[in-house]
Nucleic acid binder design. Structure first.
Lengths: 296, 296
DNA sequence: GTCTGACTTTTAGTCGATAAAAAACAATTT
DNA sequence: AAATTGTTTTTTATCGACTAAAAGTCAGAC
C-alpha cells in the first residue's frame, strides 16, 4: 500500500507553522494551509483531525483555534517523512559512491529490494529512472550492470556540460540590458560575496548556490534536454559531495572565486572573456571530480 | 505473470532457421542455437521439445533431424512475440503522434492500463522510462501531463542534435587516415548510392540507413550521453515516419543527396566544409519535422 | 572436450489488490 | 456569490505473489 509520508511531513510542517502563532489564534483555512504546505486539502484535513485528537487544535468547522503551548506537540521522526522512492535513491547512491561499487557489478533487483526493505517493483522503477544517468545498463531478461563511477564517466559528463554551459553563457551575454536575468545575476553575485565573507562557517551552503547559479545561466535560453541534463549533474554532485568531504572548504572557496570571475566576465557582455572564465571554472570542477573517481 | 514472448519468438526463429535447411539434416547443437537466437539454452530446449511434439524435429539426443517439409510448421502470430513493454510503447506513441494528443492533456495510468490491456505497473514503468524524451512531465502524487509534440519540442531537440552532430563530425574529420571509420564511411556511402539508384522501390529503407549513418558519425568520439540522445531521436523518427507518409519518397531522396554531400565533405577532411554540409542537412531535417508538428 | 539430460536456484516481468492522496462535487456559512 | 467545510469519487504509490526465462550444476555419453 501507499506510505503516508506525505501526511507525516505535512503534520510536522503544520506543527512548525502553529508554533509560530500565538496561543488561541484561529487556524488558517484549509485551502490556505493546502497551498502553503503543498499538499491536497484531503491531507490537510487528515492532519487537522489528527492535531485535534492530540489537543494542539481545538474547535471545529470555521471555529478552529491553535494551542502552540500544548504539551503534545510531538513531531514524526524525519525518516518517516521521506517517500520510498527517495529512500531507494539515497541508499543506491550510497552503495555506489560510498561503498565504491566495482564497475561490472551485476545489480540484482531482489537482492536490493531485500537490502533496502522495499518491494522489487520499487527497485525496478528506480533503476528505470536512473538509467539516464549513464551509470547502469540494462540487458533484457538478464538484469542490470553497474558501469562504474569511472574516469570515463566524469570525462563524458563534463564534455556535455561544457558544450551546454558555453552555449548558455553565450546566450546570457547576448541578453538585452533590460532583461531580468541581469538583476538575478547581480543578486546571485551578492550571494557569492556574502558566502565568501563567511566561508569558514557556511562553506556547506555552496553546493546549493552552485546548482542555482548554473541553472540561472542556462535559463537564458531554456531547453528541456539541457535542463534535464542539469538534473543529473545536480544529483551526482549532491551525493558525491555528501560522501567526499576531503578539502571541502578550500574546494568551495576556489569555486566561489571562479564563479565571481565568471560573473564579472558575463557582466562585461564580452563573449570571449565569458567563455574563458567558464572554461576555467569547468576545468577545475572536472579536476575535482576526476580526483575522486580515480580513487576507486 | 511473465509472458512467454521470448519462447514464442525463439520458436518462430527456429522455424525460419529450419526452413533454410534440407529435409533430414541434423539440428545444430543446443549451444549453437542458443548463441544464434540470443536466448538461453533453457529456452532452446523448450523450443526443441515443442518442435518435436509437432513433428518438425525427430530423434533425440545427438541424433536430431529436421523436417522443413512437415505440414505442421505453424508460426506463432507476430503479435504474441512482442513483450508487453514494447506493446505499451507502440500504443502510446500511436496515441500521441497519430491521434494528435493535445498539449496539457493529463495522462491517467489506470485509464491507459485499461485501454492497452496491461496492469498499471506496466504503464508506470513505461512513463518513467519515457520521461527522458521530454514529452511528458510528472507531478508527484498527481500523475503525468503530456507536454505536446510541439514546435518548441522540435526546436529544442534539433538545437541539441546540431551541437552533438557538429562535434562528432569535427572528431570524425580529424581521424587519422588509417582509421577504420573511413572504411565504414565508404561502405555506408555506397549504401546511399545503391539506395538512390533504386529509390522508387526502396525508399522505405532510408529510415534505418539514416539512423546508422548518424550513429557512425558519433562513434568517432563515443559519449554515453550523446548515444542516449540518439536513441531518443531514433525512436521519435521511427514512429513519426510510421504515421506521416506525406511526401516520403521525395523527402528521403533529398535527405540521401544531403548525406552524400556531407560524406564527401567529411572525406576531404576539411572541417569547415563538413560543418557546412552537416548544418545544411540538419536544417532541412528540422524543417521536415517542424512541418508535421505545426499540423497539430 | 563438447554435447545432452535432468535437475535446482536465481532473477526478471507481470498482475491484481489495497491504502494514501488528490480531485471533484455538494452543502454550508458569512 | 465567494469562500469554506463536508462528502464521495478517482487516481497514484506500494506491496506481495506468481510464472517465464536465465543461469548454474553435475553426471554420463559420444
Amino acid at each position: 500500500m501507499k506510505t503516508d509520508t506525505v501526511f507525516k511531513r505535512a503534520y510536522n510542517d503544520a506543527l512548525d507553522l502553529i508554533s509560530r502563532l500565538a496561543e488561541g489564534e484561529p487556524l488558517p483555512s484549509e485551502n490556505t494551509l493546502s497551498a502553503s504546505m503543498g499538499v491536497s486539502r484531503t491531507t490537510v484535513r487528515k492532519v487537522i483531525a489528527s492535531l485535534k485528537a492530540s489537543g494542539v487544535i481545538s474547535g471545529a468547522g470555521r471555529e478552529r483555534n491553535v494551542h502552540p503551548s500544548s504539551p503534545s506537540m510531538h513531531r514524526f521522526p524525519e525518516s518517516e517523512t521521506v517517500p520510498m522512492a527517495a529512500q531507494v535513491e539515497e541508499r543506491f547512491m550510497e552503495w555506489m559512491l560510498r561503498d565504491n561499487a566495482r564497475p561490472g557489478t551485476a545489480i540484482n533487483e531482489l537482492d536490493l529490494a531485500r537490502k533496502f526493505g522495499v518491494a522489487t517493483t520499487g527497485i525496478r522503477e528506480f533503476l528505470n529512472r536512473f538509467q539516464r544517468f549513464g551509470l547502469i545498463e540494462k540487458r533484457p531478461n538478464a538484469g542490470w550492470v553497474f558501469k562504474g563511477f569511472t574516469t570515463n564517466f566524469a570525462l563524458e559528463l563534463f564534455e556535455i556540460r561544457e558544450m551546454f554551459e558555453l552555449r548558455s553563457a553565450r546566450a546570457l551575454a547576448a541578453m538585452p540590458d533590460g532583461s531580468s536575468h541581469w538583476v538575478q545575476l547581480e543578486a546571485i553575485r551578492r550571494e557569492h560575496v556574502d558566502l565568501l565573507n563567511d566561508i569558514e562557517a557556511r562553506y556547506h551552503d555552496f553546493s546549493d548556490l552552485d546548482s542555482r547559479f548554473h541553472r540561472l545561466i542556462s535559463s537564458a535560453a531554456p531547453n528541456r534536454f539541457i535542463d534535464s541534463f542539469y538534473d543529473i549533474i545536480t544529483v551526482i554532485f549532491h551525493y558525491h559531495y555528501q560522501w567526499n568531504k576531503h578539502d571541502e572548504r578550500q574546494r568551495n572557496e576556489v569555486a566561489i572565486r571562479e564563479h565571481l570571475t565568471y560573473i564579472e566576465a558575463l557582466f562585461t557582455r564580452n563573449v570571449t572573456m565569458a567563455e574563458l572564465a567558464c572554461r576555467a571554472h569547468l576545468t577545475s570542477a572536472r579536476e575535482t571530480l576526476l580526483r575522486s573517481t580515480s580513487m576507486h
